[in-house]
């Protein structure tokens, strides 16, 4: 379903972010990508979302090369992928409700659907009492749960979580990981990048380890270190 075909990314200053990376991810998988900072994890995700173009190689989603998509198909593709970032990236001038509604509006959903789904998904991440707050009024854990709700609301095929627990304390980290696990159990593919050994070990799912732009290990059993 997701296929990286011999992908390399070299930046104009000659620094190599990715080197000949090949792997595939099946539907409904939960995959963690681990490795030290600068290993290429974030570049990998940016290439998947077509925020950046690979220097060589190609990235496929289902049958199509994501870098060959037209503008319209690109927007449709991105709506099938829910994103969760380390720094939350909520829209600061919108309330919690509006942040989530915006994603649905962008996908062209009707007002009725929005009124029905937003409270539902906020209930799922246990934030029904913060509907009309602005992001600056939320704690880190709450903000991240809003971000997850936003990623979920369009019922995406894939959720990508880029270091989602990087700014969170252990309790909130645990909550976020539990939510991601629940999402995966309901049938959504989850791709998670993290430094956190504890998370990986507790998940027991597939782990792709990266170092200096290469995949050094792809382990079905799920340990941070082999």
């Amino acid at each position: 379903m997701i296929f990286f075909d011999r992908v390399s990314k070299v930046y104009p200053d000659e620094s190599v972010a990715l080197e000949n990376v090949t792997f595939s991810i099946e539907p409904k998988e939960f995959v963690s990508i681990v490795g030290p900072s600068g290993a290429g994890k974030t570049t990998l995700l940016k290439l998947f979302l077509a925020e950046e173009k690979p220097s060589t190689g190609a990235v496929f989603y289902e049958e199509s090369d994501v870098h060959a998509l037209g503008k319209k198909e690109m927007n449709e593709f991105r709506r099938k992928v829910g994103m969760v970032f380390q720094d939350f990236r909520l829209l600061p001038n919108k309330t919690v409700y509006e942040n989530i509604a915006f994603t649905m509006e962008a996908a062209g959903r009707s007002d009725e659907e929005i009124e029905q789904d937003v409270p539902h998904v906020l209930d799922l991440v246990d934030l029904s009492n913060k509907v009309w707050n602005f992001p600056r009024e939320l704690s880190g854990g709450e903000a991240q749960r809003v971000a997850i709700a936003r990623a979920l609301v369009n019922e995406p095929d894939v959720i990508i979580a880029d270091e989602p627990t990087g700014n969170l304390d252990p309790v909130n980290t645990y909550d976020v990981v539990q939510i991601l696990k629940k999402i995966n159990d309901l049938g959504t593919t989850v791709i998670l990048t993290t430094h956190n050994k504890g998370i990986i070990d507790s998940l027991g799912k597939r782990v792709i380890a990266m170092e200096r732009g290469r995949v050094i290990r792809d382990d079905r059993s799920g340990k941070y270190f082999a």
Binding site: E51, K71, R78, M83, R89, L91, F102, E105, A106
Partner: peptide, 9 residues
């Protein structure tokens, strides 16, 4: 962010 959630231009 709007771009990444698939909003059109």
């Amino acid at each position: 962010v709007m771009r990444l959630v698939g909003a059109s231009t």
